[in-house]
Design a protein around this nucleic acid. Structure first.
Lengths: 198, 198
DNA sequence: ACCATAATCAACATAGCGTTGGAAAACAAC
DNA sequence: GTTGTTTTCCAACGCTATGTTGATTATGGT
């Protein structure tokens, strides 16, 4: 790990700029956010901004990549000790909940930005390697099914965060696993019964 | 129907502006598209643009609303004569395929724009009224399930258009119905068998 | 042919962009 | 602390797109 020590000033500048952008993106579309405004909020000189980023999109892109990286290392660490998919999902949801503001912004910003696509890639890499084997169906159809499931899941998580995380993490994880996997499950009836009674 | 006859000049102007924007949006994110550029492509004076729209987003918004309106009337017409959901879906896919360029742009532009949300609202209104009854579960969970299904379906359609509509409309309709409905189907095995052999 | 309406054109002030060079401040190392 | 380096700040620059205006030309409907 080539951990170069970064000048405190640089770290501070980058941090406040990221904070400012996330703050602004809660209310405005990124296209409506000017570099000038970001710098005003962050109380950073505009030329300093340009010393680090090209524009607001570049800044967002860096935030996304850093978040993806964080998720990746987080997941890798947890996966080393053999936990259930349910537990893993719960950990992830907790992580998302703790960074709700950030995740809402990133998940909402689907077009152009690579965040959702990266998450999709990540999930595929982790949990869906066996799908093709289980199905033994056309690769393209598998692609469709995966895309369907992951996109739907992310949207559900987004709504969950949006509405203020009303349901418990455990509950959401259950629901997602059901929605995500029930096509490979032979029996889903017991869970459906639970939902009906809920 | 208060069908006011519109000056040919106005219709022409609006049409070429819409065309130009869709054209540009195939390659650029809307935030990177200037009013000036749109007018250049459309060969329309910039002040004429401002006589009709506020900015590029306003123009896009109008395109979206018009498309939603078209879909709505289209669906309403077809629904009056009792057709199966499969047939309906096929008709819709055909419609999307014929306007592939437009639909790809609109589906891809999720954030900010209301298009996907409107489609979601429309689908709910049409086909999912009975979901709640069938499930008899918490309204919020029903919301999640619907959101999951519709979002996933739209993304699948988007990919299908993106990749050049390799699969037949009938095939895609089958797949979507499976993904969309299989939680209420008692037996999906016969279809899964079909996929495995495919 | 007439008049209303729409599109064009030129011009304007404004605002944000992206860059620059030099002064001031904060940093790390000694 | 002193020193040398790095980063930020500041003021200014030209540039481009914006949004608006008023006058002129062209086109539409009847």
């Amino acid at each position: 790990m080539a951990k170069k020590k970064i000048d405190r000033r640089v770290r501070y500048t980058k941090d406040v700029l990221k904070e400012a952008l996330i703050l602004l993106m809660a209310d405005n579309h990124i296209s409506k956010i000017s570099v000038k405004k970001i710098c005003e909020i962050a109380d950073v000189n505009r030329s300093t901004f340009y010393a680090h980023y090209e524009n607001q999109y570049d800044l967002l892109s860096h935030i996304e990549r850093q978040t993806i990286q964080d998720i990746h290392t987080f997941v890798a660490k947890e996966r080393s000790r053999q936990i259930t998919l349910h537990t893993m999902l719960c950990l992830f949801l907790e992580y998302a909940a703790q960074n709700a503001k950030l995740f809402r912004v990133l998940l909402n910003e689907r077009s152009d930005s690579a965040f959702s696509d990266e998450v999709i890639r990540l999930v595929k890499e982790l949990a869906l390697v066996e799908t093709h084997l289980e199905f033994k169906t056309k690769p393209r159809v598998v692609e469709y099914i995966q895309l369907f499931s992951i996109t739907g899941s992310l949207r559900v998580i987004e709504k969950w965060l949006e509405d203020g995380m009303i349901e418990s993490i455990d509950e959401v994880a259950d629901l997602l696993l059901l929605l995500f996997n029930h096509r490979v499950l032979k029996e889903e009836t017991h869970y459906l019964r639970g939902l009906r009674d809920g």
